[in-house]
């Protein structure tokens, strides 16, 4: 019973933290008119910086997917990979970030290419 309770609590934490990150991004959009590309870059860089300072890992431990699913989690992945690589040597320090993020980047490229084979863009009505 307590295990189920814990899982439920984890969902609540993921929802809260992930939602707060998104709401924060929306507030930035509202106040600054940044386009979506710039928002993604800013939050990704924020994730890198917080991870490098050791502040993002506790958030990941606390909220799980709530911290890894937003784009700042991508930054966390990159920085974490680089930091782990740095323990091995210079080569791993420089290549570690993309190696850690390779699953996400490969998936985005491959699936996007597949989708472009199947679909075409739709015109919009609203």
């Amino acid at each position: 019973m307590s295990e189920l309770w814990e899982i439920l609590l984890m969902f609540v934490k993921a929802f809260g933290v992930g939602g707060l990150i998104c709401a924060g991004a929306q507030l930035v959009i509202n106040l600054t008119d940044l386009t979506s590309g710039k928002i993604l870059v800013c939050f990704m860089l924020g994730g890198v910086a917080l991870t490098a300072l050791g502040l993002y890992q506790p958030l990941v431990d606390f909220a799980g997917a709530g911290a890894t699913v937003p784009i700042s989690g991508f930054g966390y992945l990159l920085a974490n990979g680089a930091m782990r690589g740095a323990q091995k040597g210079l080569y791993e320090a420089l290549t570690g970030s993309l190696a850690a993020a390779s699953a996400g980047v490969s998936a985005a490229v491959v699936f996007s290419f597949l989708m472009s084979l199947i679909f075409r863009s739709h015109t919009k009505h609203s």
Binding site: K38, L45, T51, A52, I71, L78, Q87, S112
Partner: peptide
């Protein structure tokens, strides 16, 4: 398709990899 795939998301990869390499270098 291939050339314009990273039209919007390109900056994320560029800045992400650069920042990651910088973090790695500093930690090293």
């Amino acid at each position: 398709t291939a050339a314009k795939m990273f039209n919007v998301a390109g900056p994320i990869i560029v800045f992400g990899v650069s920042a990651g390499a910088a973090v790695g270098l500093v930690y090293w």
